[in-house]
Design a protein around this nucleic acid. Structure first.
Lengths: 207, 207
DNA sequence: GCGGTAGGCTAACAAGCGTTAGTCTCCCGC
DNA sequence: GCGGGAGACTAACGCTTGTTAGCCTACCGC
């Protein structure tokens, strides 16, 4: 029954549904079964509490990803592992993960710079895998930045609608997205005639 | 020099960067070159101003999409048109579009219900096209809801990073996403041996 | 010329904000 | 048994918030 932890959970849930500025210290305290002033026995202030949640969450995501990737070496295996990790993390930590992405703007400049740094490190994993897939496996990646952020975002929003009780498990969702991404990336087997142009801009776009 | 319009633009920009609760009427007024009290000559209150922005934006997106889709009848053409429309709208109306999605939670219940209704109508367009593509063109859509929201979200986040001065035009980005989606959806030409299982769950998932 | 409306202004309101000071009580180690 | 710290509490602080009341001025139709 660690009090600090209880406060973090309540605060995370409130930041998620009302946003940082829409959440008051009195609400957090109420949810944790105490009065506002007592929060200051645990955290030095609202901004620091928020920063701790966001930074710890972002760091944890990066660490899990690196552990999962350590054993994979081919691009397809690595992309599948990263998507699976990403989807699971965003399901297991729905509230904190979304808060850490949506509410970045509520961090004070120094805190934001810190978190953005962690975030950039993580996103680089996606970009590196896509670049490797293009070089080694001939993946069709017109623009590494566009495609990687597209895939990541697609997987991120799982946190918006996923429910434990729904039709799909976390693994199902991860597999759907990995399949969608991988077959979207794999080079066209033979250009289908009369198409609107799928695949036609494979490198031409980088101008 | 319509004053109402100027206020809307300033408010949209501020809601975008600070969020609804993080934006004050005095800041909006300052940006529009007046004092806070004068805003009430144009809008009855902060919530109503916000609701007007969000509702008008969401309605406009749906209307544009329906116009664009009116001339297309095959699933591929419709999906390309819808993605193109979606991407262009989110580029042309970056701030308002993101505010209308990220800040939905700041709407009072009645206003939120109104906007969510508009939003659902719009998202149904994606779902209908995917369902039609599965039925008519054999698209691989393990789960209509998951895949459609995945594709839509991928295209939505273009508003986060797109800059008019960047390497890509709106049309380029739309084409990248349409290609990625369509080749991700098209049935595997012949199951590549030794794959991890792309495509293996084509219908089995709906349990 | 003159009345009225549109739209700005200042001043002020009550409510709510994050935060601090100071106090009280429980419990653990000696 | 007793000292002290951990952690709750009440009360209050100074500010900021959205909003209102009342006023003043410019301009347009008659």
């Amino acid at each position: 029954m660690n009090g600090d932890q209880r406060i973090r959970e309540v605060a995370t849930a409130l930041f998620y549904e009302r946003g940082y500025h829409g959440t008051t210290m009195r609400e957090i305290a109420g949810g944790a079964g105490m009065k506002a002033a007592s929060l200051y026995n645990h955290y030095p202030g609202k901004q620091q509490l928020f920063h701790r949640i966001v930074a710890d969450t972002t760091r944890a995501l990066g660490e899990e990803a690196r552990v999962r990737l350590a054993g994979c070496h081919d691009p397809e295996g690595r992309l599948r592992a990263l998507i699976d990790c990403h989807v699971r993390f965003h399901i297991d930590n729905r509230l904190a993960a979304r808060v850490s992405e949506d509410q970045l703007g509520a961090l004070e400049p120094a805190n934001r710079a810190h978190v953005v740094g962690l975030r950039d490190d993580y996103e680089r994993l996606f970009k590196e895998i896509l670049a490797a897939g293009r070089a080694e496996a001939g993946w069709r990646v017109p623009d590494v930045a566009v495609v990687s952020s597209g895939i990541a975002t697609m997987c991120t929003q799982v946190a918006t609608w996923f429910r434990e009780s729904g039709r799909l498990t976390a693994g199902d969702v991860a597999r759907i997205f990995a399949d969608l991404a991988l077959s979207g990336l794999s080079p066209p087997p033979a250009a289908a005639p009369g198409e609107h142009g799928a695949g036609q801009l494979t490198g031409a776009l980088i101008r």
